[in-house]
Amino acid sequence: MKKMQLSYKYINLIITVVLFFALFAAGSVLYNGFFSTQVLLNMLIDNAFLIITAIGMTFVLIIGGIDISVGSVIALVCMLSAYLLEIQHLSALIVIPLMLLMGFLFGIVQGSFIHFFTIQPFIVTLAGMFLARGLCYVISIDTIMITNSFYQFIATYRIPLPFDNYISISVMIALALVAAALYLNNYTKFGRAVYAIGGNAQSAMLMGLPVGRTKVLVYGLSGFCSALSGVVFSFYMLSGYGLHAMGLEMDAIASAVIGGTPLTGGVGFITGTVFGVLIQGVIQTLIMFQGTLSSWWTKIAVAFLLCLFIVLQRIVVSRKERTKSIS
């Protein structure tokens, strides 16, 4: 009986993991050359920035908020670092920390608006989204190419793995962040407070948890993750452009939701989010191997999954409510 009960919170996570392997298996059966470690690794390489953003988003969703400014922050980081590197000729070692700090502060400001003035997170981060995207154009309307040697080096460097496989430095950054997030989530007071507040902010306050500080910090963390993702994205694109990472916030939210993090707060899985990203990756790869379908099928498939998972969560919640009222 315990096992039966165990499943409900993890149901989305389990479905996602199973689905990922099923899709990968299907691809391997259907297409030659699909079944290889490198195909799997390429999914990580192509989606490292999405993993990073989605992790920040997961924290925000667990606490019961939303952050739709992440895509724009990525674009701003790309643009600003391109500007500082190429036009101001600053060293990469100055630019990168500066960008991370900016992202963090950007999030802190958004979080403060949300907490101190009790404005809906959707609206605040909407303004943040406009602002960051607009600031890109203030810097430049056109693409700025990044020719900085450090960036070039990181962009092209391949970390060799056994059996002729390789990954990029970005993947290493993403994996390091996943590890850090897992630790933060499970082994620190901050991480547990995030869950508590998302579960029941009122109770959390009564239990003496620092609700305000945690909330603001979570948005700061999300801003930091977006900035880190922006740095990784600029390694990937080697340019700054106002239209970079358009709509990425929705991909990040979708990844988290598909990975078993509901938008109602209190529940969330870092590993689930990683699988949520990978599912999008495997769908992309499948469509690539298929050859005739266009890339927009990815969006439809993702939306379909999103819908499925949201409705599923709703059913789980309403069933829980019903059993509660009966008992």
Binding site: A127, G128, M129, F130, L131, R133, G134, L135, C136, Y137, V138, I141, G242
Partner: peptide, 9 residues
């Protein structure tokens, strides 16, 4: 595109 900044404000 700078309208975005104005809008955000």
């Amino acid at each position: 595109e700078i309208t975005l900044v104005v809008k955000s404000i």
